[in-house]
């Protein structure tokens, strides 16, 4: 368990054994904290609980009572669907109609539900579809479309010493101007799974323990989830102001390169990546303008994860050389 001093509600933090956590997940649910959100997770299927515990066991869990942001429950809708061709029905406590997935899809249903809750209900933070990492006062946002490799790059950086904020949901506190970490399991797809298994294997003796099973045949192909590094979980409340925006482009045949872009282009890529820019309005415009004003911006094109990490570190090092990196805001 990480040091409790790093978490918000230390008075009700609880140290579950895996068995205790399994029992709680199977019954009334366990209250899981990920960054700014606390969600009650109840899982009726044993295989999903096993995967969940493997990925989330190092996260803080709370005993009653805590204020919950969300609840999520995954269960078989009736007796037959619990045991015969089991289907995982996802109840996110909202007016939503998820098509049940085969229970064998395990974590896909849970992560899909958590994504839905944040994407549809989070209005207090400006949200970017972006990989976000931080290190030594550098808050790096990498806005990109699905399939651009941003999850792989964010995860890759996090396993080389960067703090993972998120591989998918960048959150900005518009009052303080700080990036808010939300270090969920990293969603890896298709070829990136093998890449990340090799990448994590270079720094961990038990790399397989960091990954869920691979789920084949999803609408996005094969999916596998990766646990963020322990340091990123421990630092889930350590915020950083954004000061670098990099647009990542994966191209297997490209020569690795850092390309300049205009601030206007970076601004609109941030706007287009934001799920709630239109809902928030003026404050969102001001917040993105502030980010771009404070940031060095570029585009990187890369054929491999190793190249991408090198390009990011080169760009950031040059920025640090210019004396522009700010301080931490933990």
């Amino acid at each position: 368990m990480p040091p409790t001093s790093l978490f918000h509600k230390t008075d009700t933090l609880i140290n579950f054994t895996d068995q205790q956590l399994d029992a709680r997940l199977a019954s009334r649910g366990a209250q899981l904290e990920i960054g700014p959100f606390t969600v009650n997770v109840a899982l009726k299927f044993k295989n999903i609980r096993d995967e969940f515990i493997r990925i989330y066991r190092d996260y803080p869990f709370y005993d009653n009572p805590v204020v919950l942001d969300n609840t999520i429950r995954i269960f078989g809708r009736n007796f037959y669907r619990q045991y015969i061709k089991p289907q995982a029905f996802v109840d996110v406590g909202m007016n939503s109609d998820f098509i049940p997935l085969p229970a064998s899809m395990g974590m896909v249903s849970l992560e899909m539900g958590l994504n839905w809750q944040v994407a549809s209900a989070c209005k207090q933070y400006l949200m970017f579809h972006a990989g976000v990492v931080a290190r030594d006062g550098v808050g790096l946002i990498m806005p990109a479309m699905s399939g651009s490799g941003k999850s792989t790059l964010a995860a890759g950086l996090s396993y080389r010493g960067w703090q993972l904020h998120s591989d998918e949901f960048g959150l900005l506190d518009m009052e303080s101007g700080e990036l808010v970490p939300y270090p969920r399991a990293v969603s890896l797809k298709n070829q990136s799974i093998a890449v990340m298994k090799d990448w994590v294997g270079q720094v961990s003796d038990n790399a397989h323990d960091h990954f869920t099973n691979e789920y084949h045949g999803t609408p996005k192909g094969t999916i596998c989830y990766l646990r963020p590094p322990k340091a990123s979980i421990e630092q889930m409340h350590k915020r950083t102001k954004p000061n670098v925006v990099i647009l990542p482009i994966y191209d297997a045949s490209a020569k690795p390169a850092i390309r300049p872009i205009t601030k206007t282009m970076a601004f609109f890529r941030m706007v287009m990546s934001s799920a709630n820019y239109g809902d928030i309005g003026e404050d969102a415009f001001r917040a993105i303008s502030d980010i771009i004003n404070a940031s060095d911006v570029c585009e990187i094109i890369y054929p491999s994860l190793e190249d991408a990490v090198s390009l990011v570190e080169e760009f950031v090092a040059n920025k640090a050389g210019d004396g522009k990196a700010g301080g931490d805001h933990g």
Binding site: T262, K263, T264, F267, F268, V271, G278, G281, E282, F285, R286, S289, I292, N293
Partner: peptide, 22 residues
């Protein structure tokens, strides 16, 4: 109207419509 101005363009936010233009 609220403006952000950079070297290559100006971006304007219209709070009445919620539209952003460059």
């Amino acid at each position: 109207l609220i403006w952000s101005e950079w070297e290559d363009a100006s971006i304007v936010y219209d709070p009445r419509s919620g539209h952003t233009q460059v």
